[in-house]
Design a protein around this nucleic acid. Structure first.
Lengths: 208, 208
DNA sequence: ACTTGAATTGATCAAATGGTCAAGTTCGGC
DNA sequence: GCCGAACTTGACCATTTGATCAATTCAAGT
Protein backbone atom coordinates (compact mmCIF):
# COMPACT_ATOMS: atom_id res chain seq x y z
CA UNK A 1 0.00 0.00 0.00
CA UNK A 2 2.43 2.64 1.17
CA UNK A 3 5.51 3.11 -0.95
CA UNK A 4 8.41 1.17 0.49
CA UNK A 5 12.14 1.28 -0.08
CA UNK A 6 13.78 1.36 -3.46
CA UNK A 7 17.53 1.08 -3.33
CA UNK A 8 19.15 3.08 -6.09
CA UNK A 9 22.42 1.23 -6.40
CA UNK A 10 24.10 -2.10 -5.94
CA UNK A 11 25.47 -1.14 -2.56
CA UNK A 12 22.01 -0.05 -1.56
CA UNK A 13 20.52 -3.40 -2.40
CA UNK A 14 23.15 -5.17 -0.37
CA UNK A 15 22.44 -2.93 2.60
CA UNK A 16 18.70 -3.47 2.38
CA UNK A 17 19.37 -7.18 2.44
CA UNK A 18 21.63 -6.88 5.46
CA UNK A 19 19.04 -4.78 7.27
CA UNK A 20 16.24 -7.25 6.59
CA UNK A 21 18.35 -10.10 7.93
CA UNK A 22 19.27 -8.14 11.03
CA UNK A 23 15.69 -7.02 11.50
CA UNK A 24 14.41 -10.56 11.32
CA UNK A 25 16.88 -11.71 13.95
CA UNK A 26 16.18 -8.88 16.35
CA UNK A 27 12.41 -8.68 15.88
CA UNK A 28 12.10 -12.43 16.35
CA UNK A 29 14.09 -12.37 19.56
CA UNK A 30 12.56 -9.28 21.17
CA UNK A 31 9.26 -8.63 19.43
CA UNK A 32 8.33 -5.41 17.69
CA UNK A 33 8.40 -3.11 20.69
CA UNK A 34 11.36 -4.80 22.32
CA UNK A 35 13.52 -4.48 19.22
CA UNK A 36 15.68 -1.38 19.15
CA UNK A 37 16.70 0.29 15.94
CA UNK A 38 20.19 0.73 17.33
CA UNK A 39 20.50 -2.97 17.86
CA UNK A 40 19.24 -3.81 14.39
CA UNK A 41 21.64 -1.28 12.92
CA UNK A 42 24.51 -2.68 14.90
CA UNK A 43 23.63 -6.22 13.85
CA UNK A 44 23.61 -5.01 10.26
CA UNK A 45 26.94 -3.27 10.82
CA UNK A 46 25.82 0.26 10.19
CA UNK A 47 24.78 3.39 12.00
CA UNK A 48 21.23 4.02 13.09
CA UNK A 49 20.68 7.05 10.83
CA UNK A 50 21.99 5.01 7.95
CA UNK A 51 19.45 2.31 8.57
CA UNK A 52 16.73 4.95 8.75
CA UNK A 53 17.94 6.16 5.40
CA UNK A 54 16.79 2.89 3.85
CA UNK A 55 13.68 2.35 5.96
CA UNK A 56 12.16 5.61 7.09
CA UNK A 57 10.48 4.17 10.15
CA UNK A 58 10.72 1.14 12.39
CA UNK A 59 7.24 0.19 11.30
CA UNK A 60 8.20 0.26 7.63
CA UNK A 61 11.13 -2.03 8.31
CA UNK A 62 8.96 -4.37 10.33
CA UNK A 63 6.43 -4.67 7.55
CA UNK A 64 9.17 -5.41 5.04
CA UNK A 65 10.63 -8.14 7.23
CA UNK A 66 7.20 -9.60 7.80
CA UNK A 67 6.27 -9.65 4.12
CA UNK A 68 9.44 -11.49 3.25
CA UNK A 69 8.74 -13.95 6.04
CA UNK A 70 5.23 -14.71 4.89
CA UNK A 71 6.39 -15.44 1.38
CA UNK A 72 8.75 -18.10 2.66
CA UNK A 73 6.05 -19.47 4.91
CA UNK A 74 3.60 -19.91 2.04
CA UNK A 75 5.98 -21.60 -0.37
CA UNK A 76 5.73 -25.23 0.78
CA UNK A 77 1.95 -25.18 0.79
CA UNK A 78 1.85 -24.00 -2.82
CA UNK A 79 3.69 -27.16 -3.76
CA UNK A 80 1.17 -29.58 -2.23
CA UNK A 81 0.61 -31.84 -5.21
CA UNK A 82 -2.86 -33.31 -5.87
CA UNK A 83 -1.43 -35.73 -8.41
CA UNK A 84 0.56 -37.66 -5.85
CA UNK A 85 -0.81 -40.04 -3.26
CA UNK A 86 -1.91 -38.44 0.01
CA UNK A 87 0.87 -40.15 1.90
CA UNK A 88 3.49 -38.91 -0.54
CA UNK A 89 2.09 -35.41 -0.91
CA UNK A 90 1.36 -34.79 2.76
CA UNK A 91 4.59 -36.50 3.76
CA UNK A 92 6.50 -34.24 1.43
CA UNK A 93 4.65 -31.22 2.80
CA UNK A 94 5.58 -32.18 6.35
CA UNK A 95 9.20 -32.62 5.30
CA UNK A 96 9.19 -29.22 3.64
CA UNK A 97 7.65 -27.51 6.64
CA UNK A 98 10.15 -29.13 8.97
CA UNK A 99 12.97 -28.07 6.66
CA UNK A 100 11.62 -24.54 6.90
CA UNK A 101 11.52 -24.79 10.68
CA UNK A 102 15.10 -25.92 10.61
CA UNK A 103 16.37 -23.43 8.06
CA UNK A 104 14.44 -20.36 9.12
CA UNK A 105 13.56 -20.68 12.79
CA UNK A 106 13.63 -16.95 13.38
CA UNK A 107 11.20 -16.37 10.51
CA UNK A 108 8.88 -19.00 11.91
CA UNK A 109 8.93 -17.39 15.34
CA UNK A 110 8.41 -13.90 14.01
CA UNK A 111 5.42 -15.04 12.03
CA UNK A 112 4.03 -16.83 15.06
CA UNK A 113 4.49 -13.88 17.39
CA UNK A 114 2.80 -11.59 14.92
CA UNK A 115 -0.23 -13.84 14.64
CA UNK A 116 -0.41 -14.42 18.37
CA UNK A 117 -0.60 -10.72 18.95
CA UNK A 118 -3.60 -10.51 16.68
CA UNK A 119 -1.82 -10.26 13.31
CA UNK A 120 -2.20 -6.47 13.28
CA UNK A 121 0.08 -6.14 10.28
CA UNK A 122 -0.90 -9.27 8.40
CA UNK A 123 -4.62 -9.59 8.68
CA UNK A 124 -5.14 -8.33 5.14
CA UNK A 125 -2.69 -10.78 3.59
CA UNK A 126 -4.07 -13.65 5.60
CA UNK A 127 -7.60 -13.03 4.45
CA UNK A 128 -6.63 -12.67 0.81
CA UNK A 129 -3.50 -14.47 -0.30
CA UNK A 130 -3.50 -17.25 2.28
CA UNK A 131 -7.27 -17.70 2.23
CA UNK A 132 -7.40 -18.20 -1.52
CA UNK A 133 -4.47 -20.59 -1.47
CA UNK A 134 -6.23 -22.62 1.22
CA UNK A 135 -9.35 -22.69 -0.89
CA UNK A 136 -7.43 -24.49 -3.62
CA UNK A 137 -5.82 -26.96 -1.26
CA UNK A 138 -9.11 -27.77 0.41
CA UNK A 139 -10.29 -29.17 -2.91
CA UNK A 140 -7.24 -31.39 -3.13
CA UNK A 141 -7.84 -32.79 0.32
CA UNK A 142 -11.53 -33.33 -0.32
CA UNK A 143 -10.66 -35.19 -3.47
CA UNK A 144 -8.44 -37.60 -1.54
CA UNK A 145 -11.19 -38.13 1.00
CA UNK A 146 -13.77 -38.78 -1.71
CA UNK A 147 -11.43 -41.34 -3.24
CA UNK A 148 -11.32 -43.12 0.08
CA UNK A 149 -7.62 -42.56 0.50
CA UNK A 150 -7.83 -40.21 3.47
CA UNK A 151 -9.82 -40.21 6.70
CA UNK A 152 -12.84 -37.97 6.64
CA UNK A 153 -11.33 -34.94 8.33
CA UNK A 154 -12.17 -31.28 7.85
CA UNK A 155 -9.33 -29.96 5.66
CA UNK A 156 -8.84 -27.02 8.00
CA UNK A 157 -8.07 -29.25 10.98
CA UNK A 158 -5.75 -31.31 8.85
CA UNK A 159 -3.76 -28.27 7.83
CA UNK A 160 -3.76 -26.83 11.33
CA UNK A 161 -2.38 -30.07 12.72
CA UNK A 162 0.44 -30.13 10.22
CA UNK A 163 1.27 -26.46 10.71
CA UNK A 164 1.21 -26.82 14.46
CA UNK A 165 3.30 -29.97 14.66
CA UNK A 166 5.96 -28.75 12.25
CA UNK A 167 6.26 -25.15 13.36
CA UNK A 168 6.41 -26.25 16.95
CA UNK A 169 9.98 -27.42 16.45
CA UNK A 170 11.10 -23.94 15.46
CA UNK A 171 8.83 -21.89 17.68
CA UNK A 172 9.32 -23.85 20.89
CA UNK A 173 12.93 -24.62 20.22
CA UNK A 174 13.97 -23.29 23.63
CA UNK A 175 11.61 -25.67 25.40
CA UNK A 176 12.57 -28.62 23.23
CA UNK A 177 16.22 -27.98 23.76
CA UNK A 178 15.77 -27.73 27.51
CA UNK A 179 13.88 -31.02 27.64
CA UNK A 180 15.65 -33.15 25.05
CA UNK A 181 18.96 -31.37 24.77
CA UNK A 182 18.57 -31.33 21.00
CA UNK A 183 17.58 -29.00 18.19
CA UNK A 184 16.53 -29.48 14.58
CA UNK A 185 20.06 -28.34 13.78
CA UNK A 186 21.15 -31.80 14.92
CA UNK A 187 21.03 -34.08 11.88
CA UNK A 188 19.92 -37.17 13.70
CA UNK A 189 17.23 -35.37 15.63
CA UNK A 190 16.00 -33.75 12.43
CA UNK A 191 15.59 -37.10 10.70
CA UNK A 192 13.95 -38.66 13.74
CA UNK A 193 11.55 -35.73 13.93
CA UNK A 194 10.51 -36.07 10.31
CA UNK A 195 9.74 -39.73 10.81
CA UNK A 196 7.91 -39.19 14.10
CA UNK A 197 5.71 -36.36 12.86
CA UNK A 198 4.75 -38.25 9.73
CA UNK A 199 4.06 -41.36 11.73
CA UNK A 200 1.87 -39.56 14.23
CA UNK A 201 -0.12 -37.51 11.77
CA UNK A 202 -0.34 -39.91 8.89
CA UNK A 203 -0.59 -43.22 10.74
CA UNK A 204 -1.79 -42.26 14.21
CA UNK A 205 -0.64 -43.38 17.60
CA UNK A 206 -3.11 -45.96 18.76
CA UNK A 207 -2.59 -49.44 17.44
CA UNK A 208 -5.57 -51.34 16.18
CA UNK B 1 13.47 -16.91 44.66
CA UNK B 2 13.21 -13.16 45.15
CA UNK B 3 10.60 -12.00 47.62
CA UNK B 4 7.45 -11.02 45.82
CA UNK B 5 4.33 -9.16 46.88
CA UNK B 6 2.43 -9.93 50.04
CA UNK B 7 -0.86 -8.11 50.29
CA UNK B 8 -1.64 -7.19 53.85
CA UNK B 9 -5.39 -6.91 53.64
CA UNK B 10 -8.43 -8.22 51.88
CA UNK B 11 -8.58 -5.27 49.55
CA UNK B 12 -4.94 -5.81 48.75
CA UNK B 13 -5.52 -9.39 47.71
CA UNK B 14 -8.34 -8.36 45.45
CA UNK B 15 -6.16 -5.74 43.85
CA UNK B 16 -3.30 -8.14 43.28
CA UNK B 17 -5.76 -10.45 41.59
CA UNK B 18 -7.06 -7.65 39.39
CA UNK B 19 -3.55 -6.62 38.45
CA UNK B 20 -2.52 -10.15 37.52
CA UNK B 21 -5.56 -10.50 35.29
CA UNK B 22 -4.92 -7.17 33.64
CA UNK B 23 -1.23 -7.96 33.27
CA UNK B 24 -1.98 -11.26 31.58
CA UNK B 25 -4.28 -9.59 29.09
CA UNK B 26 -1.90 -6.78 28.23
CA UNK B 27 1.34 -8.78 28.21
CA UNK B 28 -0.24 -11.42 26.00
CA UNK B 29 -1.43 -8.84 23.50
CA UNK B 30 1.67 -6.64 23.35
CA UNK B 31 4.55 -8.68 24.73
CA UNK B 32 6.73 -7.64 27.62
CA UNK B 33 8.25 -4.53 26.08
CA UNK B 34 5.12 -3.48 24.28
CA UNK B 35 2.99 -3.61 27.42
CA UNK B 36 2.71 -0.30 29.25
CA UNK B 37 2.26 -0.07 32.96
CA UNK B 38 -0.30 2.68 32.45
CA UNK B 39 -2.36 0.40 30.29
CA UNK B 40 -2.22 -2.48 32.73
CA UNK B 41 -3.19 -0.13 35.54
CA UNK B 42 -6.07 1.26 33.52
CA UNK B 43 -7.26 -2.24 32.67
CA UNK B 44 -7.14 -3.06 36.37
CA UNK B 45 -9.01 0.17 37.15
CA UNK B 46 -6.35 1.85 39.21
CA UNK B 47 -3.62 4.43 38.95
CA UNK B 48 -0.11 3.59 37.84
CA UNK B 49 1.55 4.43 41.17
CA UNK B 50 -1.01 2.27 42.89
CA UNK B 51 -0.12 -0.67 40.73
CA UNK B 52 3.55 -0.06 41.44
CA UNK B 53 2.65 -0.16 45.11
CA UNK B 54 1.77 -3.83 44.74
CA UNK B 55 4.44 -4.79 42.24
CA UNK B 56 7.55 -2.71 42.57
CA UNK B 57 8.67 -3.17 39.00
CA UNK B 58 7.25 -4.19 35.66
CA UNK B 59 9.57 -7.16 35.69
CA UNK B 60 8.27 -8.35 39.05
CA UNK B 61 4.71 -8.18 37.78
CA UNK B 62 5.65 -10.02 34.62
CA UNK B 63 7.26 -12.85 36.55
CA UNK B 64 4.20 -13.16 38.77
CA UNK B 65 1.88 -13.36 35.76
CA UNK B 66 4.14 -15.90 34.11
CA UNK B 67 4.37 -18.13 37.15
CA UNK B 68 0.63 -18.26 37.47
CA UNK B 69 0.36 -19.07 33.78
CA UNK B 70 2.81 -21.95 33.94
CA UNK B 71 0.94 -23.54 36.81
CA UNK B 72 -2.23 -23.67 34.75
CA UNK B 73 -0.30 -24.96 31.78
CA UNK B 74 1.14 -27.90 33.72
CA UNK B 75 -2.06 -29.04 35.35
CA UNK B 76 -3.54 -31.24 32.60
CA UNK B 77 -0.30 -33.11 32.08
CA UNK B 78 -0.11 -34.03 35.76
CA UNK B 79 -3.42 -35.82 35.33
CA UNK B 80 -2.30 -38.11 32.51
CA UNK B 81 -3.37 -41.43 33.96
CA UNK B 82 -1.25 -44.57 33.37
CA UNK B 83 -4.07 -46.80 34.63
CA UNK B 84 -6.37 -45.95 31.75
CA UNK B 85 -6.06 -47.13 28.20
CA UNK B 86 -3.85 -45.00 25.96
CA UNK B 87 -6.83 -43.96 23.89
CA UNK B 88 -8.75 -42.87 26.96
CA UNK B 89 -5.85 -41.24 28.75
CA UNK B 90 -4.41 -39.41 25.73
CA UNK B 91 -7.88 -38.53 24.51
CA UNK B 92 -8.67 -37.04 27.88
CA UNK B 93 -5.38 -35.15 27.86
CA UNK B 94 -6.16 -33.68 24.44
CA UNK B 95 -9.61 -32.67 25.66
CA UNK B 96 -8.12 -31.00 28.71
CA UNK B 97 -5.51 -29.14 26.70
CA UNK B 98 -8.13 -27.92 24.26
CA UNK B 99 -10.31 -26.82 27.15
CA UNK B 100 -7.34 -24.85 28.42
CA UNK B 101 -6.85 -23.29 25.00
CA UNK B 102 -10.47 -22.31 25.03
CA UNK B 103 -10.64 -21.07 28.61
CA UNK B 104 -7.28 -19.34 28.87
CA UNK B 105 -6.20 -18.31 25.40
CA UNK B 106 -4.28 -15.30 26.67
CA UNK B 107 -2.31 -17.46 29.09
CA UNK B 108 -1.49 -19.87 26.31
CA UNK B 109 -0.23 -17.07 24.10
CA UNK B 110 1.81 -15.44 26.83
CA UNK B 111 3.49 -18.72 27.60
CA UNK B 112 4.16 -19.29 23.92
CA UNK B 113 5.60 -15.83 23.35
CA UNK B 114 7.87 -16.21 26.35
CA UNK B 115 9.27 -19.50 25.09
CA UNK B 116 9.65 -18.25 21.55
CA UNK B 117 11.78 -15.41 22.77
CA UNK B 118 14.10 -17.86 24.43
CA UNK B 119 12.24 -18.38 27.72
CA UNK B 120 14.49 -15.84 29.49
CA UNK B 121 12.30 -15.86 32.58
CA UNK B 122 11.26 -19.50 32.61
CA UNK B 123 14.32 -21.51 31.70
CA UNK B 124 14.90 -22.53 35.29
CA UNK B 125 11.36 -23.80 35.83
CA UNK B 126 11.35 -25.60 32.52
CA UNK B 127 14.50 -27.51 33.31
CA UNK B 128 13.36 -28.48 36.78
CA UNK B 129 9.64 -28.71 37.34
CA UNK B 130 8.57 -29.49 33.79
CA UNK B 131 11.55 -31.75 33.10
CA UNK B 132 10.88 -33.95 36.10
CA UNK B 133 7.18 -34.17 35.32
CA UNK B 134 8.02 -35.24 31.80
CA UNK B 135 10.34 -37.89 33.14
CA UNK B 136 7.42 -39.48 34.93
CA UNK B 137 5.13 -39.33 31.94
CA UNK B 138 7.75 -40.79 29.65
CA UNK B 139 7.57 -43.97 31.70
CA UNK B 140 3.82 -44.13 31.27
CA UNK B 141 4.10 -43.80 27.53
CA UNK B 142 6.88 -46.36 27.30
CA UNK B 143 4.76 -48.76 29.29
CA UNK B 144 1.92 -48.45 26.79
CA UNK B 145 4.35 -49.04 23.94
CA UNK B 146 5.83 -52.09 25.63
CA UNK B 147 2.34 -53.47 26.07
CA UNK B 148 1.79 -53.11 22.34
CA UNK B 149 -1.02 -50.62 22.78
CA UNK B 150 0.77 -47.65 21.27
CA UNK B 151 2.90 -47.15 18.19
CA UNK B 152 6.60 -47.09 18.89
CA UNK B 153 7.10 -43.36 19.05
CA UNK B 154 9.60 -41.38 21.08
CA UNK B 155 7.56 -39.98 24.01
CA UNK B 156 8.95 -36.52 23.42
CA UNK B 157 7.58 -36.33 19.90
CA UNK B 158 4.25 -37.64 21.10
CA UNK B 159 3.97 -34.91 23.71
CA UNK B 160 5.20 -32.23 21.33
CA UNK B 161 2.57 -33.22 18.78
CA UNK B 162 -0.20 -32.98 21.34
CA UNK B 163 1.02 -29.70 22.76
CA UNK B 164 1.42 -28.23 19.32
CA UNK B 165 -1.93 -29.32 17.95
CA UNK B 166 -3.92 -28.24 20.99
CA UNK B 167 -2.18 -24.96 21.77
CA UNK B 168 -2.37 -23.98 18.15
CA UNK B 169 -6.06 -23.23 18.52
CA UNK B 170 -5.39 -20.64 21.20
CA UNK B 171 -2.10 -19.28 19.91
CA UNK B 172 -3.08 -18.93 16.26
CA UNK B 173 -6.63 -17.96 16.98
CA UNK B 174 -6.34 -14.86 14.79
CA UNK B 175 -5.32 -16.93 11.80
CA UNK B 176 -7.94 -19.59 12.43
CA UNK B 177 -10.64 -17.02 12.78
CA UNK B 178 -9.59 -15.31 9.58
CA UNK B 179 -9.65 -18.57 7.64
CA UNK B 180 -12.60 -20.43 9.13
CA UNK B 181 -14.56 -17.59 10.67
CA UNK B 182 -14.73 -19.55 13.91
CA UNK B 183 -13.09 -19.71 17.32
CA UNK B 184 -12.96 -22.27 20.08
CA UNK B 185 -15.50 -20.06 21.83
CA UNK B 186 -17.99 -21.45 19.34
CA UNK B 187 -19.47 -24.59 20.90
CA UNK B 188 -19.85 -26.52 17.68
CA UNK B 189 -16.38 -25.67 16.49
CA UNK B 190 -14.96 -26.64 19.86
CA UNK B 191 -16.56 -30.07 19.73
CA UNK B 192 -15.52 -30.60 16.13
CA UNK B 193 -11.97 -29.62 17.01
CA UNK B 194 -11.77 -32.09 19.85
CA UNK B 195 -12.90 -34.90 17.56
CA UNK B 196 -10.62 -33.88 14.72
CA UNK B 197 -7.47 -33.54 16.82
CA UNK B 198 -8.06 -36.87 18.51
CA UNK B 199 -8.77 -38.52 15.22
CA UNK B 200 -5.65 -37.17 13.57
CA UNK B 201 -3.24 -37.86 16.41
CA UNK B 202 -4.67 -41.07 17.75
CA UNK B 203 -5.88 -42.70 14.54
CA UNK B 204 -3.89 -40.96 11.82
CA UNK B 205 -4.96 -39.59 8.50
CA UNK B 206 -4.03 -42.16 5.93
CA UNK B 207 -6.43 -45.01 5.51
CA UNK B 208 -5.04 -48.48 5.34
C1' DA C 1 39.42 15.81 -12.64
C1' DC C 2 34.73 17.14 -12.06
C1' DT C 3 30.00 16.70 -11.00
C1' DT C 4 25.99 14.75 -9.19
C1' DG C 5 23.31 11.95 -6.52
C1' DA C 6 23.68 8.20 -3.29
C1' DA C 7 25.42 6.82 1.14
C1' DT C 8 26.90 7.81 5.84
C1' DT C 9 27.08 9.80 10.44
C1' DG C 10 27.60 12.83 14.83
C1' DA C 11 24.77 15.64 17.20
C1' DT C 12 20.43 16.55 18.72
C1' DC C 13 15.34 16.71 19.60
C1' DA C 14 10.80 15.37 21.34
C1' DA C 15 7.91 11.97 23.05
C1' DA C 16 7.13 7.99 25.67
C1' DT C 17 7.68 5.50 29.68
C1' DG C 18 9.37 3.14 34.02
C1' DG C 19 9.72 4.51 38.38
C1' DT C 20 9.75 7.87 42.72
C1' DC C 21 7.88 10.77 46.35
C1' DA C 22 5.47 13.48 49.39
C1' DA C 23 1.09 14.16 50.70
C1' DG C 24 -3.50 12.70 51.39
C1' DT C 25 -7.31 9.08 52.26
C1' DT C 26 -9.30 4.85 53.86
C1' DC C 27 -9.53 0.74 56.72
C1' DG C 28 -9.55 -2.15 60.80
C1' DG C 29 -8.74 -2.93 65.53
C1' DC C 30 -9.13 -0.79 70.06
C1' DG D 1 -13.73 8.37 68.03
C1' DC D 2 -8.58 7.31 67.70
C1' DC D 3 -4.51 5.66 65.65
C1' DG D 4 -1.31 3.29 62.98
C1' DA D 5 -0.91 0.74 58.95
C1' DA D 6 -2.45 -0.03 54.44
C1' DC D 7 -3.79 2.13 50.40
C1' DT D 8 -4.11 5.83 46.78
C1' DT D 9 -2.63 9.52 43.76
C1' DG D 10 -0.97 13.97 41.27
C1' DA D 11 3.20 15.77 40.14
C1' DC D 12 7.61 14.94 38.87
C1' DC D 13 12.23 12.90 37.37
C1' DA D 14 15.60 10.30 34.49
C1' DT D 15 16.27 7.46 30.85
C1' DT D 16 15.35 5.38 26.67
C1' DT D 17 14.44 5.62 22.02
C1' DG D 18 12.42 6.67 17.44
C1' DA D 19 13.32 10.07 14.36
C1' DT D 20 15.59 14.42 12.13
C1' DC D 21 19.13 17.16 9.94
C1' DA D 22 23.07 19.46 8.48
C1' DA D 23 27.30 18.25 7.03
C1' DT D 24 30.62 15.00 5.04
C1' DT D 25 32.24 11.10 2.30
C1' DC D 26 31.82 7.93 -1.46
C1' DA D 27 30.84 6.03 -6.14
C1' DA D 28 29.83 6.32 -10.92
C1' DG D 29 29.38 8.54 -15.16
C1' DT D 30 31.42 12.10 -18.32
Amino acid sequence: MTALKKPKSRIGEVNVERILDAGLAVFARHGYSGARIDQIAETADMSKPNLLYYFRTKEELYRAVLTRTLDMWLKPLRELDPARSPREALGHYIDQKLAYSRGHPAASRLFAIEIMQGAPHLSRVLSTELASLIETKKATIRKWIAEGRLANIDPYHLLFAIWAATQHYADFDAQIQTLTGKTLADDEFFEATKLAVKRIILDGLVLR
